[in-house]
Structures are given as structure tokens and as C-alpha cells.
């Protein structure tokens, strides 16, 4: 499966539009309330965004996890496990609206920097503490748990929901205080970080990427390396937006399956798909 950057961009745009079909709501500030919101989106997309047609899977996990007598969302958890086993972190590279937004930010011509490696583990901490731990802890102690990641961290919520809603609702603008200031500061810091470190949020903070990434090594659709073709030119490593060396870490939890390495390889040694490419030549017909 060889997908050019232009085609991937088109898929990303289509996925963003399919997840956010109610574009007219952005001007009115009203929310879509149809039953499609029972379904989770594959990427990070706030369900309080006026344009959102689907629900955010992280929001769903926290909401159900924080509801008395539930504790864990088997529905959203099973949905993420299903996508993870099918294609690992491919949703990050192709279907996540916030991923697309970060890729567009990385077009700003600033010097590129690599992420300080220990920060890669921060997203697992986000998952354990803010997405799973705090909603469950407060549900057990106080009967109802807040969606802590949405409340204190999520920049997608600030960008897609808070900004359009504050622009269209004066009463929300008046109510905005310290918590909104914190979230706006996180968003602003992330915007700046994403300009010099491509996909900074995906690399360091995204709990959804952490869940999908854990499935990368065993997913059905995966990256295959044909060592007999590889000439170790390093083109794949230079092309990778996630700073991975696909020759050494072919199915790393950090790989978003964007296919940049595959497109950069002059020998076509990398192949994203279900099965390994068959390198055997068809025997020539001899009479």
C-alpha cells in the first residue's frame, strides 16, 4: 500500500470533514445532538465542538469511567482495541483532525528540533493518570469523576470547542476564568512547540496515540522491512516525522503509519500492509 503525501492529505481532510459535518454550527454555536454521537471517532475530536458529528473516544472513556457503577467504558475501550489491533496507530497518521492540524503547523518555516526522548513516556502518564486514574478515583470517592484530561489538558477541546463557543456565546466569555486561561496557555505552548517539533502533541502527550501505539507491534496492518532490499541509506529515518529509524524499530509504538518512510525509500524496502510483499519472481515460462 503506497500512498502519496497528497493522497494522505486528502484522506485526512475527508476524515476531518466526516467527523465534523455540522460546519454551519460553528457560526451559531449550537451543538449537534443526533444519535451519531453515540459513535466514537477514531481520532482526537472534541464532542463539544459545534461541528462534531461523532464523539471523542477519550471523552467517552472518561465520561463512562467517571459515572457511578460503571468505572470503565467497555464500549470505547473495545473500539480503541479493535482499531489498534486492525491497524495500530494508522488512525493518527490518516484520520485524526488534530494530527492534521499539527502537520499544517509544522509547515511554518522554523528550525526543526527533535523531542527530548524521555518526554515520549509522558503520554502514558497522561493515559494512566488523567484519562483512567482520576475519573475512576473521584467516582469511587465522590460518586462522580470529572473528565480530567479534557478538563485540565486537552488542547483539541480548547481549539475545537472552547474557541468557537466563547466566540458565539457572551455568557461563556464572562464565565471564563483561571481554568480557561490554563487551557489556553497549554494550547498556545503546544502551537509553538508543534512548529519546531512536528507532531509534538502526538509524540509527548496524546493518550489516544499511547493506546494505539501499544498495539503497533502486533497489529494486522503493519510496516514490513525487506532487509534484502535495504541499502541503509537512511532516507526513511530522515523522512520520518516521528523521528524513528524504521530499519531498527519497524513497528515502534511511536510510528503513526503515515507512510513517509515508504515513500522516501529508493529501494522500496518498506511496505505498509497486511502481508509481507512477495519478492519471489514469477518463474518464466519455458517451453
Amino acid at each position: 500500500m503506497l500512498i502519496s503525501l497528497a493522497r494522505r492529505r486528502l484522506i485526512q481532510l475527508m476524515a476531518t470533514l466526516l467527523t465534523n459535518q455540522q460546519l454551519m454550527n460553528l457560526t451559531s454555536g449550537r451543538l449537534y445532538k443526533g444519535s451519531a454521537k453515540e459513535l466514537c471517532a477514531p481520532g482526537l475530536n472534541c464532542y463539544s465542538c459545534p461541528a462534531a458529528t461523532l464523539s471523542c473516544p477519550l471523552g467517552a472513556i472518561q465520561t463512562v469511567g467517571g459515572t457511578a457503577s460503571y468505572g470503565f467504558s467497555f464500549y470505547a475501550g473495545g473500539f480503541l482495541l479493535l482499531l489498534g489491533v486492525l491497524w495500530g496507530r494508522l488512525a493518527c497518521g490518516f484520520l485524526c483532525p488534530f494530527g492534521l492540524f499539527q502537520e499544517l503547523l509544522a509547515k511554518v518555516p522554523l528550525p526543526r528540533k527533535k523531542l527530548y526522548a524521555p518526554l515520549l513516556y509522558l503520554k502514558y502518564l497522561m493515559l494512566l493518570v488523567f484519562v483512567l486514574g482520576l475519573p475512576l478515583f473521584f467516582m469511587l470517592t465522590e460518586g462522580i469523576g470529572p473528565p480530567a484530561f479534557c478538563q485540565y489538558i486537552c488542547p483539541a477541546g480548547t481549539l475545537e470547542a472552547a474557541l468557537p463557543l466563547l466566540l458565539t456565546h457572551p455568557e461563556y466569555r464572562e464565565a471564563a476564568g483561571g481554568l480557561f486561561a490554563l487551557k489556553a496557555a497549554i494550547l498556545a505552548a503546544l502551537l509553538i512547540a508543534c512548529m519546531s517539533v512536528p507532531r509534538f502533541f502526538c509524540k509527548a502527550l496524546c493518550p489516544l496515540g499511547a493506546i494505539y501505539g501499544l498495539m503497533n507491534p502486533l497489529s494486522i496492518c503493519r510496516l514490513h522491512l525487506d532487509k534484502s532490499r535495504c541499502i541503509s541509506c537512511g532516507a526513511c529515518q530522515r523522512a520520518c516525522p516521528m523521528d524513528i529509524d524504521p530499519r531498527k524499530q519497524t513497528n515502534s509504538p511511536e510510528c503513526i503509519r503515515c507512510g513517509a518512510c515508504q515513500n522516501a525509500c529508493p529501494q522500496q524496502a518498506l511496505h505498509l500492509g497486511i502481508k509481507k510483499r512477495d519478492n519471489k519472481k514469477t518463474p518464466e515460462f519455458t517451453s
Binding site: P147, A161, F180
Partner: peptide, 9 residues
């Protein structure tokens, strides 16, 4: 509207 998501909750 999720008040937590928009930083008002």
C-alpha cells in the same frame, strides 16, 4: 456543552 472541555467546569 461539556463545561470541562471548554475550561469552564
Amino acid at each position: 456543552v461539556c463545561m470541562e472541555c471548554i475550561g469552564l467546569g
